[in-house]
Design a protein around this nucleic acid. Structure first.
Lengths: 123, 123
DNA sequence: TCTATATTTCGTATAATATAGAAATATATT
DNA sequence: AATATATTTCTATATTATACGAAATATAGA
């Protein structure tokens, strides 16, 4: 399989999982750390980490360390991927879960997530 | 997972395989029977049949019987899918394999494929 | 009706993927 | 230095995907 065909298939593979799709749409709002993503998705950290690794390996997101946090953001400038994700957003413009994910993202901060995680430990 | 999110993920799942991608791009040239697709892909009939079934279940292709042949064609009118497949074609406009697939499709007919399959039986 | 042809279904082997929990790593704070 | 926090890696497991060959089905033609 040549390079561009592989890129193409890999991008679709990355998009063919509900949780990764939600992550990518969230990152369209703003860059996020893993605990913020976890606050929205409510799945294990190790699982989120695996999804982020796949998205990074596919070249769709990049990360940057900030203290003990790792901030993930969309890679910009890939015309093909931008078109695809744009079409997705258009198709899902009224999707309740996507709207709610965005709402949560706009309300939380790393600090709030940290507090919430601490609370969870006592339960 | 709600309906549109599921559709979205399912379409990407359908596109996240090299052989299915090639099938869809071939069908953009013209409707094809299974033996014509087989002439291009060179994988087992049962495997092609499984891919076609998945594409049909995802609503991307439809089939029509013509004698003992089954002719597959792209379903038209899904704006989202049309956009996606258009982007793919644009990205892969210079892809050698895709170009060659199209060339083969333009040269073969059901009858030629039938003859070739007969020859294979004697080897 | 018997046979050839085109395709699908079934059974199965193998590989890839998603997920979680525990342990490891890296950084910040005390 | 010791501890807390954020994230990743490792390991195990369950599910799903891809592939093939053999058998089944459906239609056409002799």
């Amino acid at each position: 399989m040549n390079k561009e065909m592989k890129q193409c298939v890999d991008i679709f593979k990355a998009l063919s999982d509900k949780n990764r799709m939600r992550i990518l749409l969230m990152l369209r709002v703003r860059p996020l750390c893993v605990c913020e993503i976890s606050e929205v998705l409510n799945i294990a950290f190790s699982t989120i980490s695996a999804h982020l690794k796949l998205l990074r390996n596919t070249g769709l997101i990049e990360d940057e360390k900030d203290g003990r946090w790792v901030i993930y953001r969309l890679v910009e400038g890939d015309e093909f991927f931008d078109d695809i994700l744009g079409s997705v957003e258009e198709k899902l413009h009224g999707d309740k879960q996507v709207l709610n994910d965005r709402k949560v993202v706009s309300e939380i901060t790393r600090e709030i997530c940290a507090l919430k995680l601490k609370e969870k430990q006592y339960n």
